[in-house]
């Protein structure tokens, strides 16, 4: 088993000033790892919440610190914001007497593919994959455009496995648009997995509205946030539609965080 009693793990999330859902999964993965005893201590840090990236190193009591971004892709936050706020200048940096080892973000680990497959199977039990179109939905615009690249990469990997009838990357705000899911897919069953780190406005409200499974009046879907997942399957536009929680709520993320630490060590060895 993974054991680093003399090291600290810091899991970095984006966080939100609007709701607690954004940081929820990051805390859950941290709690699971802390309980496993894999590290001497485990902390979270956030861009928009506390502990902040500027505070967290003061809470660390070990000399060796692994930092794993709980982000879907490499991008502005992992390449600019997190290193800047923590004072990092490369994969390994000495910060005030601590050795900080900066790992790759969770979403770029190869095991993400397994988690997506697991989530897809769980949301549509007993549904034949060969007769299913699987959608991986990314945001797809703005600062973090690498999330679209990451979604495409996962789609290619899953497609290559030949399990599903078809596998399609779609986005909220750029082509191919998830709103056109029925035109983009051909199979009788449709599984939609949001490729996001947490449930929140996008998965509770925006995507359900785009799919046509929630009322578009503002706040209507959020008021019934969890309900949108409880009502699977949706019979809509001549198909059976299954809508999953954001991939980041998958408990297996905790293991992928540890995998990124192991990958850092392997690369440094």
């Amino acid at each position: 088993m993974f054991s680093k009693p003399d090291s600290t793990l810091v899991i970095v999330g984006h966080g939100s000033t609007l709701n607690p859902d954004s940081s929820g999964p990051t805390w859950e993965h941290a709690d699971a790892i802390a309980q496993s005893g894999a590290f001497g201590e485990v902390h979270c840090a956030f861009w928009k919440e506390e502990p902040s990236l500027r505070q967290v190193l003061h809470c660390v009591t070990k000399r060796e610190v692994y930092v794993v971004p709980n982000f879907i892709s490499e991008g502005y936050f992992t390449q600019t914001v997190i290193p800047r706020e923590l004072g990092l200048d490369g994969p390994q940096t000495n910060v005030a007497g601590r050795t900080v080892k900066y790992c790759a973000p969770v979403g770029s680990h190869a095991r993400m593919t397994d988690l997506l497959l697991k989530r897809a199977a769980a949301v549509a039990p007993g549904v034949p994959p060969k007769e299913t179109s699987l959608f991986i939905v990314g945001h797809g615009t703005g600062l973090n455009d690498n999330s679209a690249v990451a979604a495409k990469r996962e789609v290619e990997r899953i497609r290559a496995l030949g399990i599903f009838g078809e596998v399609i990357a779609a986005y909220m705000e750029e082509d191919p648009l998830i709103a056109k899911w029925d035109e983009l897919s051909t199979q009788p069953n449709v599984v939609v997995v949001p490729f996001f780190i947490a449930d929140g406005l996008h998965s509770y409200e925006d995507i359900p509205v785009l799919l046509g499974i929630a009322d578009s009046s503002p706040g209507a879907a959020s008021a019934n946030a969890a309900g949108v997942f409880a009502q699977n399957p949706y019979r809509l536009r001549g198909r059976m539609l299954f809508y999953a929680n954001s991939i980041g709520t998958e408990a297996g993320f905790a293991e992928v965080i540890l995998d990124q630490v192991a990958a850092f060590d392997a690369a440094a060895a």
Binding site: E49, E50, P51, S52, Q55, V56, H58, C59, V60, A96
Partner: peptide, 19 residues
């Protein structure tokens, strides 16, 4: 740590002269 995140650690860093 949940009620007042980082506030224990930040004060201890101050006591050590590191803040």
């Amino acid at each position: 740590d949940a009620f007042y995140p980082a506030m224990i650690g930040v004060q201890l860093a101050r006591e050590r002269g590191e803040l």
